[in-house]
Amino acid sequence: MSRLTIERKVLEKNDAIANDIRSSLKENNIFAINLVSSPGSGKTSLVEKTIEFAKGRIKIAVIEGDVQTDLDAQRIEALNIPVIQIVTNGACHLEAGLVRDAYYQLNKDTIELLIIENVGNLVCPSGYDLGEELKVVILSTTEGDDKPLKYPAMFRNSSILIINKIDLVPYTHCSLEKLRSNALSINPALIIFETSCTTGEGIDLWCNWLESQLKHQ
């Protein structure tokens, strides 16, 4: 009987591909964000609003991840923005290999900001590096203020929290104050924005911040 020491990361292959993507993004001066959230929190709406606000200011491309359909890609394409749809056929998260294949289909010379919209899921995408600069987690007020405590890994691994659907707060039991303090108890370094993709509230602050990050990279 013998023991063989292995000591290797299970996701080493994914991480190696993510690092290749990161190097290429850097070479091409592209800032990439990985948008994560539960289904229906408003990821695609936020991408649309960001595109509308940043028109003429930031050159954007989008990689859409969904379990099924290209409905999201159609929404982005309608705004005349380069978009590649990844259909995972059941997989609950994007992996770096899928993102690399989509990324190489884009014309890198015309991109300043790459938005990767992950599959709607607050669990699985948290462990997969896609080569992004930042993970941005979106939580809508209708989901409840306890979600950061229930899904800590996602909030710990993200740099930005966008609290969306703030126009609906009066119709929910969600306390914005509680939501913020729950999120900060998991990750005190989180930068928090509050938005409504319906009224447009807060989109300007989010986009201005994003633009300042692009300038500083």
């Binding site: 009987m1 023991r3 020491t5 292995i6």
Partner: peptide, 10 residues
């Protein structure tokens, strides 16, 4: 999330 070792009957 790591593979640490394997034990083999050889």
């Amino acid at each position: 999330l790591k593979v640490i070792e394997i034990e083999i009957n050889d």
